[in-house]
Nucleic acid binder design. Structure first.
Lengths: 328, 328
DNA sequence: CTGAAAGCGCTAACAG
DNA sequence: CTGTTAGCGCTTTCAG
């Protein structure tokens, strides 16, 4: 018996309320004048009819976008598999919901970030949040994106940045290692091309050098798999290492697994630290000493900045705090 | 020097190519006839101008939506914090990108899933993927959503389902426990209202009963925190328990942590199993025995079904495989 | 304060 | 095969 039930349009509401479509529009969109009387009649009609504005039509006429793009640069599309990316997308999706926007996920080939131009020209794109941002990406950001783009990572004059205080967090971690008696501290880093990871490495270098300790770096990629391999490599190159700083919690977990596979005690023989404080970090054995990383807050701030369109400071840094547990 | 650079419209392309807008539309959208000559000219002009179709306009006229909504039901908006939800949203966002769609995330109050009606009326919504689906949610799905909705979890005549074979996976896990000599096997479940978790519990019951073993159930909620508490409770109620099945890997990790806190050896005294096989499961100590759960594949399939609009089978189940490691 | 009119950029019949 | 003609549903000048 239900008729085809075409969702009501603004026109239906206007008719039912006995006003013009223009007036109905004003009260629904909450913009422009309308007498209290008209306001009531329109709201009543809208409620009665179960009217839901068509955001597509609104976006078309207003020229605003309908989606926020999370653009992740990396060697291949596999970078999108990262749980970190999922968290960013999840947070962005929550920020978008009240605006009636959606989130799309794009891979930006590291060698060729020109896809950004298409995103800027695409009128259905309301804004862009950059992840794993590199200098090359920053250079490729078209001026037309001004005010509609933000970076989780490094930024530029055009691109405000939102990031955790990698340097401060890492410094606290390495100092903690030093304070607990470790003197031969290695670090497993992220991929070379990712400059935000560079801040962690820089902090490590500085603390270690200032203390007169040797610098011991092995390249990783944030994954547990490479962490495990890196454990072997550290032991092979510097058998007397007594602490290893992982660039991420996953790296640290891989490190612990790799060390244990070689019969090395953690933290007895070698202390291991992570970075991020993922929920599971508290549950592993030994529980992971790490630094906090409020990814959700960061992503929320970045997405909000992009959508609000109000001017934001060029850099917003979120503090990182040492979390002492059992692994170091 | 850059002029305001208004992005080119289809009209500009048509003009530049010397054809009508309709023809240009046909070749750009790849729909309908067009002579090879016209095709070339339009493509050339589009390329030269850097034309990017305005998907908002297209969606408006075609009546298709511009976003896919992931609707998660639960007691409070906190359900959206689940990493599982992030994975679903991430996968959906990837599927959406080529369609020019975005993903939005909505919380569906468990007591009142009527929000679904608004989603169905909202013409900007292209489709809905249900997560943590309950019978009440299924009942609240409006007929207008037919063909544009899918469930990750239980389904109905109107709502095709995509899910992992919880029953099969759990059965394999419990049988493994039995085969390795465990005879007093407890299980930590999910929240009562979530029927898909019920399939796991059902499988556990069946295997245990068929083997003439006692049924020992404690309620959890997928989180590590409650897993830890559940360990205590199991030990308190049934001190001779020699194995605990966790409803999720996080639960299992919490269980292991809780058991160890009480000086119980895993797997020596009590074997523990998880479910999901999250990446970290292989890296913990002891490495977790669990069952696979291809969340990404499932979410991808669900999102694809919703967007493709082609008829799909009422139920697609993804196999779960036992992964034997060290915890059981 | 309100209505009429003019589109936003695109697609979809329908005749040529 | 192609151009003409109408809109999709909404917002926004611009006169009343």
């Amino acid at each position: 018996m239900t008729t085809a039930h075409r969702p009501p349009t603004l026109n239906d509401v206007a008719l039912a309320a006995g006003v013009s479509r223009a007036t109905a529009s004003r009260v629904i969109a909450g913009t422009g004048y309308a007498s209290p009387d008209a306001r009531d009649r329109v709201n009543a009609a809208a409620g009665r009819l179960g009217y839901v504005p068509n955001l597509t039509a609104r976006a078309l006429v207003r020229g605003t976008g309908v989606r926020l793009v999370v653009a992740v640069s990396g060697a291949g599309p596999a970078v999108l598999d990262d749980p970190y990316v999922d968290r960013v997308v999840g947070a962005a999706a929550r920020v978008c919901a009240p605006y009636g926007l959606g989130v799309a996920l794009h891979w930006l080939p590291r060698r060729d970030p020109s896809g950004l131009r298409r995103l800027a020209e695409d009128r259905s794109v309301g804004g862009v949040v950059l992840v794993n941002t590199t200098q090359a990406v920053l250079r490729a950001v078209p001026a037309a994106l001004r005010g509609r783009v933000a970076s989780i990572g490094i930024g530029s004059a055009l691109v405000p940045t939102f990031d955790v205080d990698n340097g401060g967090g890492t410094k606290a971690v390495v100092r903690h290692l030093y304070a607990t008696g470790r003197r031969r501290i290695a670090m497993v880093t992220g991929p070379r091309w990712l400059s935000c990871a560079g801040r962690s490495v820089g902090a490590y270098r500085r603390v270690v050098r200032d203390a007169g300790l040797p610098v011991r770096l092995v390249r990783g990629d944030f994954s547990a798999r490479l962490g495990r391999a890196a454990a072997r490599e550290v032991l092979r190159r510097w058998p007397d290492t007594d602490a290893i700083v992982g660039i991420s919690d996953a790296t640290a977990l891989g490190l612990i697994d790799g060390l244990r596979g070689d019969g090395v005690q953690v933290p007895g023989d070698v202390a291991v630290t992570g970075f991020d404080d993922i929920p599971l970090a508290a549950m592993t054995t030994p529980a992971l000493t790490t630094a906090t990383h409020p990814v959700g807050q960061i992503a929320t701030a970045a997405a909000t900045a992009v959508l609000a369109g109000r001017p934001v400071p060029p850099a917003t840094v979120f503090p990182s705090r040492l979390v002492r547990r059992l692994s170091a």
